[in-house]
Design a protein around this nucleic acid. Structure first.
Length: 814
RNA sequence: GCCGGAGUGGCGGAAUUGGCAGACGCGCACGACUCAAAAUCGUGUUCCGUAAGGAGUGUGGGUUCGAUUCCCACCUUCGGCACCA
């Protein structure tokens, strides 16, 4: 009787005791660093964690059986808001709660039977870990990649903290954690210069990553090519604008500044001042939601100031309008209403002149009614008249000509702009790694000396939210002395965004207790880079951009090697509830892995998660569906354990058993390589069905049968590690099945000796003929024509044409 | 609006390169075993049709001897971005 609970706990105990999954440097074997994104210790392991981790584990096991020395570590991304929020609600210290959750989840994870090397476990909230998070912050600061800036930031009034751009979601711009609409707040904050790597981050060379992630990152970074052009006010103040359409410069009839633009105050004439200031106040009070509504009626105010268009010396008015954003480009635009929809709408509303400067094919251009934004030849553009432009990027010859013209006259130059912004690191919260910086009234901002790291997070703080950083309210914590002059100074009281912790965790796994640096260089040299990274697509524009940035910055400071930290990436989809909705407690559709393991065993749960959907797509859960996989696992057990007829199998039966075995091996091997877990399981199911048939026909006891069992168990081992280990031992084979090598395909055995030849007439299947494999085209044609069914359908007509796909198909065209 | 993915039986899904659509599993139906039920085993299961046969991979076109697969247009849906100059 198959008893998964007993088998699984017994083998797990033995594997752990004997260190079966310990990964150590071994120069004699090729390495494989398999990494799956570490969980946040929310309290309970979710079926989604199983869905992410167990197929990744199976893949890691497959690689191990293929001769690789595999590192497959696990840890906890333990800092962060939810722990703090939950703690506030329940009155339990975040640290206490987080570590209790970790203890619980670690035990839950062990029930997966995964090949995690627990000796390498990390917890990002351990001082032993965040000492090095702080060390990296200081290195980035020393590289000039960390800087402080007063800036308007997205602030969640419920979480009482700042949010990065990607932590603000949806049309109503709400907090990703608590759904509260965010507001703007002006704060002095730490930033990392991710923008310095914008161009390099667009280069995915050598990365075996999904197209989807690449596109998301490209859109996020959003490179646009154009020119920067300098205009001068009548007071000779320069105003720089960025434009992707320098070819339309002759059509610029006004300029628009963002209401926050620094020059607005000095440009505004006394008579316009009241109106301008009122508009600025109104814009400041408006949330981004209102400001960014696309179809919103344009608003704006004339400043009273003018600039001169450098190409034609036209004097054009300067307006301010909230459709120009301070956070993109230079916060100022040249407005060309004739060839930009937004400028067109603005000009129409405020009665500003519209001058067409591009004429499309057939003389099409902008009229009072419609704005023409397509390609064409330049008109009304003085020396550039007649130049053909597409309006798309630097590669356009017309564009090059225009930019060259601007450059010669010192008016403008080639420019590339990115939407990517610098990474806002500061969080006004308690449960995070303290930013290791000290502010001295005389010396300014200085890093905490390395030997004083870690800057410990104190336990005795008032972590209930006040809108101020909890560390600021601690009576003594922030008081220190200046590392340079020794005078009293204050610590930075903000903590770091947790994405900082997860940007380098793959390095800490290499040597989690190493105290001479963030990682042991010998371990780094052997294991890095990560060969296979798996995790959710939701991290495409956050974690995966940050960790790439981090790696490149480390490379440039000589701490890391290579251009990329993770060479291969695969994303799993999401397991939805049975109701096809996202799982949530409030919907009551959450699937508990613990209950499933108790009922079916981990092997069945693992197998079902691999089988029930394409891994990269995900699908709704089905409680009845898992019965099928449970049946398969049980049938595997019974195949080995049940009494069966001995002997009597014909050579044909044995031949076809071997054929199916090696065909399956070929397929399963391929599917493991390409992360197609669902067809791995279905392939094994098919093979099992064949083995049952062969067993009924007396195959048991033959060498073919023994080979089939051996290979079947090896193939199944990565999917269902416990039952295969048990059956492997039962068959008297050497411990452990998981250290066996992956079987080799016998191509000759896998080859078919008969094939089904499909005969079509005008593309419709009319006959299926079983013929020997390797049949010649002539033989195929003859066999097809000889078929009575074919003759019947030919109705005596002569074929016009006969197409033959060797060994597969004959299509007779009449 | 822009970018990307997806659309195949009652359901989850399969189909190396343009060549047998629906593997595998769920569910369902019938049968065996059983006093009975569960479990297990067997058979069947895209739709229409008694059958011969016909239709069929979101819709409409196209290329081709042949299209789930390639091309064009569109619809639905999911995800991302969105006054980005």
């Amino acid at each position: 009787m198959y008893n998964p609970a007993e088998i699984e706990s017994r083998w797990q105990a033995r594997w752990e005791k004997e260190g079966l999954y310990h990964a150590n440097i071994d120069p004699s074997r090729p390495k494989h660093y398999a990494l799956t994104m570490l969980p946040y210790p929310s309290g309970d392991l979710h079926i989604g964690h199983w869905y992410a981790m167990t197929p990744s584990d199976a893949r890691a096991r497959f690689m191990r059986m293929n001769g690789y020395n595999v590192l497959f570590p696990m840890g906890f991304d333990a800092f962060g808001l939810p722990a703090e929020n939950a703690a506030i609600k329940l009155g339990i210290h975040p640290k206490e709660r987080t570590y209790a959750n970790i203890a619980h989840m670690r035990e839950q994870m062990k029930s997966m039977g995964a090949m995690f090397d627990w000796r390498r476990e990390i917890t990002s909230a351990d001082p032993e870990y965040y000492r090095w998070t702080q060390w990296f912050f200081i290195r980035l600061f020393q590289q000039g990649l960390a800087y402080r800036k007063m800036s308007p930031v997205d602030w969640c009034p419920n979480c009482n903290t700042t949010l990065a751009r990607e932590q603000v979601w949806g049309d109503d711009r709400h907090c990703e954690r608590c759904n509260t609409p965010v507001i703007k707040k002006e704060l002095d904050q730490w930033f990392f210069r991710t923008t310095q790597y914008a161009e390099e981050l667009l280069n995915f060379e050598g990365l075996d990553w999904p197209e989807r992630v690449r596109v998301l990152q490209e859109n996020w970074i959003n490179r646009s090519e154009g020119a920067s052009v300098i205009f001068h006010t009548e007071q000779e103040d320069p105003i720089e604008v960025f434009t992707t359409r320098p070819d339309t410069l002759w059509g610029a009839t006004f300029m628009v500044l963002s209401p926050e633009h620094p020059l607005v105050a000095s440009l505004t004439t006394p008579e316009q001042r009241p109106e301008v200031e009122a508009y600025q106040g109104q814009a400041a009070r408006q949330s981004d939601i209102d400001r960014e509504a696309v179809d919103k009626e344009k608003t704006g105010v004339f400043t009273g100031g003018y600039v001169v268009n450098p190409v034609n010396n036209q004097r054009i008015p300067i307006w301010i309008a909230d459709y120009v954003l301070m956070t993109y480009g230079t916060g100022a635009i040249m407005a060309v209403p004739a060839h930009d929809e937004r400028d067109f709408a603005f000009a129409k509303k405020f009665g500003l002149p519209i001058i067409p400067v591009i004429e499309g094919e057939g003389g099409v251009t902008t009229t009072e009614e419609a704005c023409y934004i397509g390609p064409g030849k330049m008109i009304n553009s003085g020396p550039m008249n007649g130049t053909y432009v597409t309006g798309k990027g630097h590669e356009d010859a017309g564009m090059q000509k225009v930019i060259a013209y601007l450059q010669e006259r010192g008016i403008g130059k080639l420019e590339v702009t990115y939407k990517l912004r610098d990474w806002l690191i500061s969080r006004q919260r308690y449960w995070g790694a303290p930013i290791p910086m000290v502010h001295c009234p005389d010396c300014g901002w200085l890093p905490v000396p390395d030997e004083q790291l870690p800057v410990l997070l104190p336990d005795d703080v008032e972590w209930r939210p006040t809108g101020e950083s909890p560390l600021k309210l601690h009576p003594t914590w922030k008081k220190t002395t200046c590392p340079a002059c020794g005078k009293p100074a204050e610590r930075e009281t903000d903590t770091m965004d947790t994405f900082m912790c997860s940007s380098w965790y793959h390095l800490r796994y290499l040597s989690p207790h190493y105290d001479q640096g963030p990682f042991d260089p010998a371990e780094y040299a052997y294991w890095m880079p990560v060969d296979s990274y798996t995790g959710g697509i939701e991290h495409a524009t956050m974690h995966l951009i940050y960790t790439r940035f981090f790696h490149k910055a480390c490379r440039d400071m000589g701490v890391a090697q290579g251009n990329e930290p993770m060479t291969m990436l695969h994303n799993q989809g999401m397991v939805l509830g049975e109701d096809n909705e996202k799982m949530s407690k409030s919907r009551g559709n959450v699937v508990s892995p613990d209950a499933l393991v108790e009922r079916h065993g981990a092997d069945t749960v693992r197998a079902y998660l691999m089988f029930f959907a394409r891994w990269d797509m995900g699908a709704p859960w089905s409680y009845s569906g898992i019965e099928g996989t449970a049946r398969w696992v049980r049938r595997t057990w019974n195949l080995v354990m049940d009494a069966a007829p001995q002997g009597g199998a014909s050579p044909e039966v044995l031949r076809s058993l071997r054929r199916k075995l090696h065909q399956t091996l070929k397929r399963v091997t391929h599917d493991f390589e390409t992360f197609e877990f669902n067809t791995i399981v279905s392939g094994l199911m098919e093979l099992l069905n064949e083995m049952y048939k062969a067993r009924e026909l007396g195959a048991v006891g033959t060498p073919e049968w023994k080979e089939a069992l051996d290979v079947y168990l090896r193939m199944m081992a990565p999917v269902a590690p416990h039952i295969t280990e048990e059956l492997w031992a039962y068959l008297g084979k050497p411990y452990s099945v998981h250290t066996q090598s992956w079987p080799q395909v016998d191509e000759a055995a896998a080859a078919e000796d008969e094939v089904t030849l499909v005969v079509q007439i005008n593309g419709k299947v009319r006959e299926r003929l079983v013929v020997p494999a390797g049949v010649s085209d002539d033989q195929a044609r003859a066999a097809a024509m000889a078929s009575p069914a074919v003759q019947k359908h030919l109705e005596g007509k002569t074929p016009k044409k006969i197409i033959i796909v060797p060994g597969k198909l004959v299509n007779i065209v009449i």
